[in-house]
Computed example of a mutant assay.
Amino acid sequence: MEKEIIIQGENPIYGSLTIPSTEGKYPAILIIAGSGPLDRNGNDRKGKYTTNLYKELAEYMGGLGFVTFRYDKRGTGKRDGDWLAAGLSDLMVDAKKAVEFMMSHPNVDAQKVIVCGHSEGTIIATKLTESFELGGLMLLSGGVDNLMEFLKVQRQLAYKELFETPGIKGWLNRKLKVDVKGEKQVENLMKKMNQTDKDIIKIQFFFKQPAKWFREHSVCNTRETLKNVKCPVFALHGDKDPLVDNKVLTELAPLVTGKSEYHIIHNMEHGLRVQTEPRSILNARKIFKELMKRPLHEEGLQKISGWLETNFKNVESTDSKQEVS
């Protein structure tokens, strides 16, 4: 059963709540979206990038017997505001209100509220553990690294692909040292971000950049936050995901004080769908439409359901474990 919810406030939050059909209290999952102008379903404002990722995840998790809630980010779906002007602090305000809503809902077991972040949402989800005693933390296509580290991984992969381009193009990229120039541009951009208190700045007179968002993310230390996480933690990456570094998940168990597990799924991309094509950040947009025709990765869903069932349905099974696959 799905219904629309409005959380009142200065900028009301519009979202979708799913509840199992039978009466009672259930464990609940809050789904937090990744970066960009994404609505509650995982789709952008202009309909160019339609993923329905969060809608599909909510349906899947709801089918396992969990209450789920997902909501529109500022400036998307039914919400007011400018998504470019929203900093990490604004995203945290919305996420905290969503957690409070779920913990107070009559059909939710307040001791079993799980926060599930995807991509940038993994940073927000991790920071929520500073304010709430959560039942669990799920990190999908992200985790451990902060935003600036994510972006550096992406740039390094792009430089590598540019250098390996066959023929004259690859030679020119190496000769012109596009990596050195690229990093200098990033350094200059961040300097401009840090020298202003504006939410949005323009680069080259026309291109808007979310300055507040960058400034606030640049001082966020997710590793320090993870050191105080006591609830069960689950992380899931795909080996075809060009936006994250799979290796950082090995840091998870030493960082958190509670039990944790992580999985790296073969032939899964950033949006949790099947990808048999080579991992590539430069070709990601080319294959996007084809990827959206494919289902969520079955093995990835099985890992999600296994963790949820073990920790929140089958409470007797509580042995600590860390897994890699």
Results as ranks from 00 to 15, higher is better:
residue 2 E to C: 11
residue 5 I to Y: 00
residue 6 I to Q: 15
residue 10 E to N: 15
residue 11 N to G: 11
residue 12 P to D: 12
residue 16 S to I: 14
residue 21 S to N: 12
residue 21 S to L: 14
residue 25 K to F: 10
residue 28 A to E: 05
residue 33 A to F: 07
residue 47 G to Y: 02
residue 47 G to H: 04
residue 50 T to I: 15
residue 52 N to W: 05
residue 69 F to C: 14
residue 76 T to V: 09
residue 80 D to S: 13
residue 82 D to M: 08
residue 91 L to A: 12
residue 91 L to N: 13
residue 94 D to I: 07
residue 99 V to F: 13
residue 101 F to I: 08
residue 102 M to N: 00
residue 102 M to C: 07
residue 104 S to I: 04
residue 107 N to R: 11
residue 123 I to E: 02
residue 126 T to H: 02
residue 126 T to E: 00
residue 129 T to S: 13
residue 130 E to L: 13
residue 137 L to C: 07
residue 139 L to P: 03
residue 146 N to W: 01
residue 153 V to A: 10
residue 161 E to T: 06
residue 162 L to F: 11
residue 171 W to E: 15
residue 178 V to R: 09
residue 183 E to T: 13
residue 196 T to D: 08
residue 202 K to A: 13
residue 204 Q to S: 15
residue 211 A to S: 13
residue 212 K to L: 12
residue 216 E to V: 07
residue 217 H to C: 08
residue 217 H to A: 05
residue 219 V to C: 10
residue 223 R to K: 12
residue 225 T to Y: 02
residue 225 T to W: 02
residue 232 P to E: 06
residue 233 V to Y: 06
residue 239 D to A: 06
residue 242 P to D: 04
residue 243 L to Y: 12
residue 251 E to V: 05
residue 257 T to W: 01
residue 261 E to W: 00
residue 262 Y to A: 09
residue 263 H to T: 09
residue 269 E to D: 10
residue 279 R to V: 14
residue 284 A to F: 14
residue 285 R to G: 08
residue 299 E to Q: 13
residue 300 G to F: 00
residue 302 Q to H: 13
residue 302 Q to G: 07
residue 305 S to P: 02
residue 309 E to K: 11
residue 319 D to E: 14
residue 324 V to E: 11
